[in-house]
């Protein structure tokens, strides 16, 4: 079992856009992504709205069919498995989304919602499943009595705990968490970030943690990938990426986050221009229209994704 838990190679997803009135075209929402998640590892994916983060997550979960590429889970290529052959693998791969309310049935008690997969897929009896659900609620910091209440009786943070309890019920190896704390207030966000950290320590689960919130990603991730217009433009360990960013986009992105401190000495790189449209991406380096260092070479030639130090990669002509 030397294969990494998850290995993604050359992943592409193209959406057809336009139609009757407009010219048909494609959006290359994911345009050649390579990604690895090791056992017990948390990999963060950051980037601005529309860069393709959620699409990567949904492709990995096989909620969406890929256009091109390979997704290996524990060494097995799952990228084209049928729904029935995916079923046993789904137990190992769970997800948590931004809006837990949308993923919880409003007419089902929380206990029943958590017990359901245990009963249907986990092979437990109803009674065992119910007891197990109560223990899971306790694990995520809720009272066992919460199992008899309905989702609307909980706050946003509590609902996210419930969604997490359900995600961990079958003992998955990987959890794809797409903006799991983005809708929460900071004081509650910190509770959930810590809960995810504790669960990882206890169960060795891996996370693919998708978020536009850079400081949260810094706190939770072992490794981080930065996406821009459907590609990964830089990846490395948490400290490589946050302390020594190489790509001009990463540098600007990190410097844009306001720090809650007076006299913060960080220098701000303010980019000019707007985020380009994914349906009509720039030539050469996709970042060149906004890049403070761009030359004519950047407009003409796509930079390669190169290793700048052990385990740290970036795609820019000038690094």
């Amino acid at each position: 079992m030397n294969a990494p838990l998850l290995e993604v190679k050359g992943l592409h997803k193209h959406f057809a856009v336009g139609g009757q009135w407009k010219k048909k075209g494609v959006v290359k929402a994911v345009n050649g992504v390579d990604l690895t998640v090791g056992r017990g590892e948390t990999v963060g994916i950051v980037g601005e709205s529309g860069c393709g983060k959620s699409t990567v997550g949904r492709l990995i979960l096989r909620l969406l069919d890929l256009t091109e590429g390979e997704i290996r889970f524990e060494g097995m290529d799952i990228s084209r498995l049928s729904a029935s052959r995916m079923r046993p693998i789904r137990k190992q791969m769970q997800c948590v989304f931004q809006d837990p309310y949308a993923s919880l049935n409003p007419r089902m008690t929380v206990g029943a919602a958590i017990a359901e997969p245990l009963f249907l897929q986990g092979g437990l009896s109803r009674k065992e499943a119910t007891l197990r659900a109560e223990r899971l609620l306790d694990t995520v910091g809720l009272h066992a009595q919460a199992s008899r209440l309905y989702p609307h009786e909980f706050s946003g943070g509590q609902r996210q705990r419930i969604a997490i309890a359900r995600a961990i019920a079958l003992g998955p190896k990987l959890i794809v968490a797409d903006e799991p704390v983005s809708a929460l207030d900071v004081s509650i966000q910190a509770q959930i970030v810590n809960l995810l950290g504790d669960l990882k320590e206890k169960t060795q689960v891996s996370y693919l943690f998708i978020s536009h919130n850079l400081s949260v990603v810094r706190h939770i991730s072992d490794r981080v990938a930065v996406m821009y217009l459907g590609r990964i433009v830089e990846s490395g360990t948490r400290d490589q990426l946050f302390d020594n960013p190489k790509h001009p986009y990463t540098q600007a992105l990190l410097s844009s986050v306001p720090e809650p401190e007076v006299d913060s000495r960080r220098e701000r790189i303010v980019l000019s221009g707007e985020v380009p449209n994914a349906a009509n991406p720039p030539s050469g380096c996709p970042f060149h229209p906004r890049c403070p260092h761009a030359t004519s070479r950047c407009r003409d030639e796509e930079p390669a994704f190169t290793e700048v130090e052990s385990g740290h990669y970036a795609s820019c002509h000038f690094i």
């Binding site: 601005e48 844009s256 986050v257 306001p258 303010v270 980019l271 985020v275």
Partner: peptide, 11 residues
Amino acid sequence: LDVTIQAQVLD
């Protein structure tokens, strides 16, 4: 807004 755009607007 995205953070890089937020930085522009705050500026």
